[in-house]
């Protein structure tokens, strides 16, 4: 066993994919000589040559569209959007072409390409560097949306994404790039489309993914030590396809559920997950499904990001509101808002 960071695992996945399949190419902004601003593509140009890993002009729609054209010629492009918010110029290519090509051509023209997106916050980044953009992609039929939370998954899911016949948006939580694990690579973890129970528990299911996985595990530890709540933590790993089976099995077992996601909550992935759980596990639930998510604000400046990011306390408070004593939860009902004042 050796200590491997999340970033190293991604780099190794790219290397192994480049080695195994001559059609794999890596392209994007600064991915060549520099090795990417997060060094995920470190050394690839040196070791595999300009043909396999190369810098492109600075234009994200161009990068995505160019990859579409290369995929038409049988290549398997892995493109990097330098940061979440800088993937937005490519959005039209992603939504109108990458997501739809298989469908509009009845499966005759497929685009096996991977869009790597370093995403979310918690790194003290200034504006436009910390957006949680997974919801936009997950809302788009035709894309797989995958987000690893551990170095082993970073490796295994990226390998699988590159080998997939479908386009995959591979969301890399920036905050986890420097996280470590004792790990021997190559390693194979559960496939895309499956969630994993990261910590078993019997009282409440905490569903989460990507950047908030460490928060969830920490909250579970604190809950056990201080509140005597036995929290089961489920890592979704794959937003699309979604693993209803693992998620529902856990909630039916525990009877309570909190969904934890860093993204702004309104109309987002956490809301979808909460709705799915409510629809499928209603009779097993002792309390409404609650969400802990980012605030519905543009991502805040670094000095205020702690108010926005969910954090262990907010998770514990929310678990505390799961009607343990059979009282309805009115903690924030009405709030000091207009309606309360009008009354």
């Amino acid at each position: 066993m050796s200590t491997t960071t999340f970033a190293q695992a991604l780099n190794r996945a790219l290397r192994d994919s480049l080695t195994d399949d001559p059609d794999v190419v890596v392209l994007g902004e600064d991915v060549g000589t520099l090795g990417g601003v997060f060094r995920i593509t470190d050394g690839l140009t040196r070791d595999f040559g300009e043909e396999r890993c190369f810098d492109t002009p600075l234009a994200e729609a161009g990068i995505a569209g160019f990859a579409v054209g290369m995929a038409m010629q049988g290549f398997r492009p892995v493109i990097e959007m330098q940061f979440d918010a800088f993937g937005f110029p490519a959005f039209e290519q992603v939504v109108s072409h990458i997501a739809k090509m298989r469908n509009r051509t009845r499966g005759r023209l497929t685009l096996p390409l991977v869009i790597r997106v370093p995403y979310a916050g918690g790194i003290g980044g200034v504006e436009h560097h910390c957006d949680s953009s997974e919801g936009y992609y997950a809302h788009t039929p035709g894309l797989h949306v995958v987000t690893p939370g551990t170095p082993a998954d970073a490796y295994s899911l990226l390998r699988e994404a590159i080998a997939s016949p479908d386009p995959v948006v591979f969301m890399e939580p920036k905050v986890l790039y420097w996280s470590k694990a004792e790990l021997d690579l190559p390693a194979t973890t559960a496939p895309i489309g499956t969630a994993e129970v990261r910590r078993e528990g019997s009282d409440v299911t905490l569903l989460t993914y990507g950047p908030q996985l460490p928060t969830a595990l920490k909250a579970a530890e604190v809950a056990a030590a201080e509140e005597d709540w036995d929290v089961e933590v489920v890592d979704l790993r794959s937003i699309v396809p979604f693993d209803d089976e693992t998620v529902m099995a856990s909630v039916r077992k525990t009877g309570r559920c909190v969904v934890l996601a860093e993204a702004q909550g309104f109309a987002g992935v956490a809301g979808e997950v909460a709705a799915r759980v409510s629809e499928r596990c209603f009779h097993s639930l002792a309390a409404p499904v609650l969400r802990v998510s980012g605030l519905d604000i543009p991502y805040p400046p670094p000095k205020l990001e702690h108010s926005h990011l969910p954090g262990v306390d907010r998770v514990l408070d929310t678990i505390g509101r799961l009607q343990w004593d059979d009282e309805p939860d009115l903690t924030y009902a009405g709030g000091p808002g207009d309606r309360a004042e009008a009354r």
Binding site: F66, V68, G69, M72, Q73, S96, H97, M101, L109
Partner: peptide
Amino acid sequence: DPVATRTAPQCTPLATQSVHAAGAAYGMKR
């Protein structure tokens, strides 16, 4: 069949096909 006819689907989102053409051309060069 775009592959059999080597003809991309008719493109409606304006100009988006032009980047595909650039990428496909580069792919053929490769």
